[in-house]
Design a protein around this nucleic acid. Structure first.
Lengths: 234, 234
DNA sequence: CCATTAAACTTGACGCCGTTAAGATAACGC
DNA sequence: GCGTTATCTTAACGGCGTCAAGTTTAATGG
């Protein structure tokens, strides 16, 4: 067990890849994406600046690994929120929207790596799988909220296949609100509204309350649903 | 007229401030916010790397000037969209939302400077004025869509004064959708949906069509409006 | 009109960044 | 035990933002 894990103290680190990821998460939490540098992460991991290249290629590779974790976190948090909503009689769609915001608020630095303009390795398989999974949850829940039957492989389908989806408008509607509010909150656009004490909490309450009400009402009211799949059940 | 404007050819530039802003816009348009550097802008303006310090203080100062332009652009585009909607019988609120997206799509680099996590001079008066104005337009139009009477000074009120606004939920709802969709589109989150030919145009059409329908319906349906101002007219 | 003052800009340097090439070291397969 | 291979270090490169000091021009005021 000590052959691959744990710092050996000497020339070889043992598990530099994980150590770099941990350091990166710490730096992102402390200084945000602005103060994030590869050298700083290497410093915290106790290695030279050139060491990470062997594991991640370059800075983009490290950011891609972080982004993959971010998508996984998103998926897990949303699924957990669904489970909790299911148990407590809450709404599933609202639950994932609140989970989305919670992820952004808990780890804003990493959230910006996931969704920011920083270039990621576009061809990375792990990253794409994680992104597809998270997106699939959003699609599935939106469709369920619309009363659609959902086949099991929604979570695996590539986003490009949703181009003609009849529910794409509703999906984008839900995602836009969720992503927009989360982004504005962590990027400080709503900072003036947070001035008074408890300002942020009140904004979050407004989001979980009135905004979710409006969102759910809009999705439910939108149910003309042309039912683009004529061979549904007969 | 040639005492202050135009390049004098010699040691003094003449209007370096404007030249730097122009160069910055060009760099943002060409390379985006990732490839944006102060030295590159100075190079294009034909001056040394240290020259801009006199006009902008530092990089943040330049970005702040760019962001101010971005807010002004936003305000002008939204007002113009309202005028056009008013003339053609379109909806005013939908018009400003589409104008918002148009600004993001036309100058994505600058848009990211305005709304990105890059630090701006938080105390800058011009920046705050421009931001308050743009936000005021959004507030005013949302309130109008809700059937509220709007006093003339909405455009001047500081955002912090909206903390107790009865329509804050609707305002944030509208803004979240608009900002969320715009951000996701220019940051590539919807790239997989743009794969097929004309993909982006179809997404924009979906936004201007179904999403705006849903948004307007949601705002109109939300009109419980508790009318938090009891001393309104008697 | 000219001397003085202030503003604008350059030069040169500093420390930091990401990345690379070449060399040192340790783990692993045989 | 030994060669191979993966891992890490050292040293260096160019580019970055920023600052201090010096140089050049414009503005000012008598």
């Amino acid at each position: 067990m000590d052959t691959k894990v744990g710092k050996r103290g000497g020339y070889h680190h043992g598990d530099l890849r994980q150590a770099m990821i941990d350091a990166a998460e710490a730096v992102l939490a402390e200084k945000g994406v602005g103060g994030f540098t590869l050298r700083e992460c290497a410093r915290r991991a106790g290695v030279s600046p050139a060491a990470p290249a062997h594991h991640f290629g370059n800075l983009v590779g490290l950011l891609t690994a972080i982004a993959t974790l971010g998508f996984d976190d998103l998926s897990q948090t949303m699924e957990a929120a669904i489970a909790k909503a299911e148990a407590s009689g809450g709404d599933r769609l609202a639950a994932i929207c609140e989970g989305y915001l919670a992820v952004a608020l808990t780890r804003p630095g990493r959230f910006r790596v996931v969704f920011g303009r920083l270039g990621l390795k576009s061809g990375d398989d792990d990253l794409r799988r994680a992104a597809v999974r998270a997106f699939g949850i959003l699609v599935r829940e939106t469709k369920l909220a619309l009363g659609r039957e959902v086949d099991a492989d929604v979570l695996m389908r590539l986003p490009s296949s949703y181009g003609d989806d009849a529910d794409l408008a509703e999906i984008l509607f839900v995602w836009s609100i969720t992503h927009g509010f989360s982004t504005m909150l962590i990027d400080g656009q709503l900072a003036p509204l947070e001035m008074q004490p408890g300002g942020r909490e009140r904004l979050i309450a407004l989001y979980s309350g009135r905004l979710m009400e409006m969102l759910l009402a809009a999705v439910r009211a939108s149910t003309p649903k042309p039912l683009a799949n004529p061979a549904s059940h007969g």
